[in-house]
Design a protein around this nucleic acid. Structure first.
Length: 294
RNA sequence: GCCGGAGUAGCUCAGUGGUAGAGCACUGCUCUGAAAAAGCAGUGGUCGAAGGUCCGAUUCCUUUCUCCGGCA
């Protein structure tokens, strides 16, 4: 019998968390979060991190594993998540990978081989100062194949590609998808666009009500710079801007709503590519799928 | 009522005597250690209305309507 994991994914505010608890309770599951922001300590309200009470005793992994002052990335995520999944298997439970960060989910589900070139932030800073076309020309010289299919307008991609050639002294390898060590069921939670917008709005107001602004104030007081907070995006970005008086309260709310809607759309664009995903309408349908899969 | 200013894309506005652009919104997309990040593309307007001048008006002129200031 091969090992099985269940993935619950979908755009923000679609109701993944609630479903994950229902399913993991019913099927003896434990949850591995696949959320690039919930990994950080102290970022709770703004990320919609599940509360202790809400977990109803279901163990959760990959929450609060990183310091917001430091950088976290897929590579670290993959190591920790693989470990958590292994641990759950050893307990005889079913791992539920739950979240909206497509890249993180892919790293697990497709067992992506991550290149052995660590980020070099000093180098990145240095490269960032140069004009993008110049960076692209450099890349075209050092790794023509990569330059050919890269997005030349995207500084982050170009810089990372350069980082790889410069540090490893050789062109980038093609992406390797290792054979996954387990069978995967991908469940997608989708909502009609209009409904999702309303859910986002409702949730945003709730978060403000719950003290999201003081959470972010607190993070800043504890040493997380405004720049860093703005880097996190969404709530952390716009509330940080509001706290610096770069935005009025009304502007902050408006931007936050729009940015979250855009984010949800980007998530869907990512997920749509994966034809393995089974999109469900309600919990019942999900339960059926899981039962059949197990 | 009088005097100014403004009416151009869903919104905020640029612009020109030869039938129009930007930012945002909207739609679609990309993704090899920042992924809630970082990028790309596309749709969209009888230029407030009616007359006039002109080969030709969104642009000039007249009238008209609406909005915003100021004065009564």
């Amino acid at each position: 019998m091969s090992k099985k994991i269940i993935v619950i994914l979908g755009p923000t505010a679609s109701g993944k968390t609630g479903l994950s608890i229902k399913l993991s309770k019913k099927f003896k599951g434990e949850v591995v979060s696949a959320d690039s922001r919930q990994v950080y300590k102290g970022m709770d309200i703004g990320t919609g991190k599940i509360t202790k009470k809400e977990t109803q005793g279901i163990p959760h992994y990959l929450l609060d594993v990183a310091d917001p002052k430091k950088r976290f990335d897929v590579a670290q995520y993959k190591i920790l998540a693989d470990k958590a999944i292994e641990k759950i298997f050893n307990k005889g439970k079913i791992p539920f990978l739950v979240g909206g960060t497509g890249f993180y989910i892919q790293s697990i589900v497709d067992n992506i081989q991550i290149l052995n070139v660590k980020p070099d932030w000093k180098l990145r800073e240095k490269l960032e100062k140069k004009p993008l076309p110049e960076l692209y020309r450099m890349l075209a010289k050092l790794d023509p194949a990569r330059a050919h299919n890269i997005d030349k307008n995207n500084p982050r991609r170009v810089i990372r590609a350069l980082e790889i050639v410069l540090k490893s002294k050789r062109p980038i390898m093609p992406l390797i998808k290792n054979k996954p060590a387990f069978e995967v069921l991908l469940i997608g939670v989708k909502r009609p666009k209009k409904e999702l917008k309303k859910l986002i709005e409702k949730r945003l107001l709730k978060r403000l009500d719950e003290g999201m602004i003081s959470e972010i104030k607190k993070l800043h007081k504890s040493g997380v710079s405004w720049k860093r907070l703005e880097e996190f995006g969404l709530e952390y970005r716009y509330v940080a801007q509001y706290l610096q008086n770069k935005l009025s309260y009304g502007q902050m709310v408006w931007h936050l709503q729009k940015a979250t809607e855009h984010y949800a759309k980007r998530q869907m664009t990512w997920f749509k590519r994966d034809k393995r995903i089974k999109w469900i309408k309600d919990t019942k349908q999900a339960e059926k799928l899981v039962k059949k899969f197990l």
